[in-house]
């Protein structure tokens, strides 16, 4: 069997893509299994005897496990809130025409663009005044600024695809709009709601700037703790990379689940 050069190039190109996208990830995971001596060897070693020492150390370190629990609390609560607040709004945007609708759209979508530093400054001052600095609540609330737009966008899109006949039939049976929302839209829109929830979770899990500014010791999230390792003379590289792996792994799995919707989530649906 002859393989044409075109096919060979195609295969090589695709292999290069896989290596390009996975290499930094692979390098982090492999470093997390190295001893400090292996990591510091120059030039870097590719083959080594793996060790679980780094993982044992970070899981014994209450700072890291506490940070992961903080991240879980903040990401889960804010995602739930985003869905509870966002799904009804999406229903209104999908089913009603009203004045100011396009302005509302604009506002929701603009939130995707705004640099966190714009809100971090005033929220920091307000958090000091209200005593909310270094609490889960302040992070949960501030994360809603980017989660709500995502939920609203994706769920509106999903709701729009639900046939209007179903609603008509329910109306004839005397169902109120609230019942229609609860009995028809929520169940049929569930896939979209799930996708939007996963995106919300990923974005809040990954967030650093707000967490850096608005937390002190008590509620440091995982990215904050991971970066806090980066000071001092002898950096504990193995621990840093093990922490990085533990942070990245769950969101990568989530992202693989919603990979078909990745573009929609990142562009707010401007391109299909």
């Amino acid at each position: 069997m002859r393989i044409s050069s075109g096919k060979l190039l195609h295969a090589l190109g695709l292999t290069a893509v896989v290596i390009f996208t996975l290499f930094p990830f692979f390098w982090m995971v492999s470093a997390s299994f190295k001893t400090q001596a292996d990591i510091l060897s120059s030039p870097p070693v590719w083959f080594f005897t793996p060790t679980l020492q780094n993982y044992a150390e970070i899981f014994a370190d209450t700072k890291v496990s506490g940070a992961i629990i903080n991240s879980l609390i903040v990401a889960t609560c804010s995602t739930l809130l985003a869905v509870i607040l966002g799904a009804p709004a999406a229903f209104a945007l999908a089913r009603y025409e009203f004045r100011g609708k396009s302005d509302l759209w604009f506002w929701f979508i603009s939130n995707r663009m705004i640099s966190p530093i714009v809100l971090a400054l005033p929220v920091y001052l307000l958090a000091i005044q209200t005593g909310l600095l270094d609490t889960h609540l302040v992070l949960i609330l501030i994360y809603l600024t980017f989660q709500l737009p995502i939920v609203v966008w994706i769920v509106t899109d999903q709701f729009k695809s639900i046939p209007a006949d179903l609603e008509q039939a329910a109306r004839l049976d005397g169902a109120s709009q609230f019942t229609i929302f609860r009995k028809i839209y929520l169940p049929l829109g569930a896939p979209g709601i799930a996708v939007s929830a996963i995106f919300s979770f990923i974005f809040s899990w990954n967030e650093l700037l707000y967490a850096l500014v608005l937390t002190r010791r008590a509620v440091q999230t995982a990215p904050v703790v991971a970066t806090s390792f980066m000071s001092g003379y002898e950096l504990p590289w193995g621990k840093i990379m093990a922490t990085g792996t533990v942070i990245v792994l769950p969101v990568t799995i989530f992202a693989l689940i919603v990979s078909r919707h990745m573009v929609r989530g990142l562009t707010m649906g401007a391109t299909k």
């Binding site: 996208t21 996975l22 930094p24 990830f25 982090m28 990923i202 899990w205 990954n206 650093l208 995982a222 990215p223 991971a226 970066t227 990085g244 942070i247 990245v248 969101v251 990568t252 989530f254 992202a255 693989l256 990979s259 990745m262 990142l266």
Partner: peptide, 10 residues
């Protein structure tokens, strides 16, 4: 999808 999901700080 992997690079897109990787925590920016990481």
């Amino acid at each position: 999808v992997v690079p897109l999901a990787t925590t920016y700080a990481v």
